[in-house]
Nucleic acid binder design. Sequence first.
DNA 1: AACGTGCTCAACCGCCGAGAT
DNA 2: AATCTCGGCGGTTGAGCACGT
Length: 396
Amino acid sequence: MGRAPCCDKASVKKGPWSPDEDAKLKAYIEEHGTGGNWIALPHKIGLKRCGKSCRLRWLNYLRPNIKHGDFTEEEEHIICSLYISIGSRWSIIAAQLPGRTDNDIKNYWNTKLKKKLLGKRAPSRRARTNQDPCYLAAGAASSSSSSSAATATQALSASALERIQLHMRLQGIYGALACSGGNDDSNAAFGSAAAAPPQWPKLEALSQANRLLPGSLPADAMATTVSVQPHPQHLVEVDHHQSLAAAALEGEQQLSSAGEGGFFERPKVDFYSPSAEVAAAAAASVEMNSVAPMVVGGYAGAAGFGPQHHHDELYDFLYSKYGSVGGLAHDGGHVPTLPELQCPDGAAAVVGADEKFSAWTAAACDYGAAAGGHQIQGNSIVGSSLHDYVLGGYGQ
DNA sequence: AACGTGCTCAACCGCCGAGAT
DNA sequence: AATCTCGGCGGTTGAGCACGT
């Protein structure tokens, strides 16, 4: 049942930090650094705190150049796009937003953005502790470790479910705008530009100036602050097809490297690739591309809807063009660009993301692009279990 | 004014992976 | 190779505040 706690809980103070404790911790770290040992640090300063607590306090609150509150539209957009792409990898998302902590982003997502995008109320305390069916459905996956019945539904994490919802909402928006008349044949829909479903919003580069992290921080203060290196070749400069191919190739490699016995069966991949060399070259520079899952899911043939289109769509959705519940103003039609995601831990993060992707794209992405419809085909378990959860979010 | 409910966010918990021994 | 220690991460909790009735 896990390893022993890192400190003696009986002699360790918990709860909110006092200004005095903050001052002690800040002064010490600014002068000496952490010494590479958070556990020993509180004893050196004379704080009755757990080392992990000190680390958290420093990283989330005391560290220089931390921003709190007031997320900009651009930041919201980045968070949403990355969440759709990689799920709840808050540290990776935080690495794209200088000055923001993973904790802040996580809180912001859970309390505001999720509701704005999904139109879903956060489960009440009562619902969480009792038997609220919606909450149980949503939380089934994350709390199912003790269950021996590893159903497909349970294998989907709560964040994956939310991402399905987000995608479906965008799908619905798209369908309402672009798809006149229903389409019961999903394969036909994929082959038709007129009925093509949207691809994932593309991540593009923020200006480099906006990406650089403060260089004045002590090295150990950057423990979870990942340096974002200038990137010589932005996705935005890469031919779209190259990006698709590269991302698909990378996903292919990662999935194959996951070895045999994977939980999910891979869907058949049939994506456009100009050439293997180009794809390989692009793959070397593209750490992650949110288009990849859609490629894996079989959408790559869709034509006529460039990444900017869906990027705009997400933005418009987020900022009320389509009457989302958020209601934030969208001034002047300017759409901020999104960052090319640079994973601090590189391949591992990508692999993890793709595992999630393969999970739900394979299981649930074979749904039709019918206008206004949110059908899920090909996996009745996922479809039925999602039904209430998904539809419950509409109409707000 | 009093009460109940919902929201926010700082902090905690427990697991995992990496590195050291 | 096995075990231990630590940093890091994502999920969850709960105190305090805001708001509605």
